[in-house]
Computed example of a mutant assay.
Amino acid sequence: MSDQDEVEHVVSKDGSSTLYVPHLNEHYHSTNGAVQESMHVFINSALNKFEGEQVSVLEFGFGTGLNAFLTLINAKADVHYHSMEKYPLNTDKIALLNYGQIEEGRHQVHFNNLHQANWGEEAEIKEGFHLYKQQCDFKTVLLEQKYNLIYFDAFAPDVQPILWTKDIFKKAYEALLPGGILTTYCAKGVVRRTMQEVGFSVERLPGPPGKREMLRATK
Rank of each mutant, 00 (worst) to 15 (best):
I43G: 10
E59D: 00
L70D: 02
D78F: 12
G180C: 14
N25T: 06
K133M: 02
E85K: 00
V109H: 08
D78T: 14
H115Y: 01
F152Q: 02
Y87H: 14
M214K: 01
E124P: 03
L143M: 11
T194C: 08
G128C: 05
H130Q: 08
N98E: 11
L72Q: 11
Q4A: 03
E127G: 06
L70P: 03
E26C: 11
Y87F: 15
V21Q: 08
A123I: 06
V11W: 06
A68Q: 03
E174F: 09
D167S: 08
Y185E: 02
L163I: 05
A154H: 04
H40V: 13
I102F: 03
K166F: 06
H82Y: 14
V141I: 15
D3F: 04
E203F: 06
A154C: 05
E53P: 05
M39I: 07
Q134V: 13
Y132H: 12
Y81P: 14
S38L: 04
R192D: 04
E85Q: 01
L19A: 03
L70E: 01
M1P: 01
G210D: 11
N118P: 05
N74Q: 11
A75W: 12
T64H: 05
D3E: 14
G33W: 11
H115E: 05
K76P: 10
I162W: 10
P178C: 15
V35Q: 09
G189H: 10
E121K: 14
I150K: 09
F129T: 02
V55D: 11
N112D: 05
Y173K: 14
E26A: 01
F60H: 03
D14K: 12
K86N: 06
L177K: 14
I43C: 10
Q134F: 12
E6C: 11
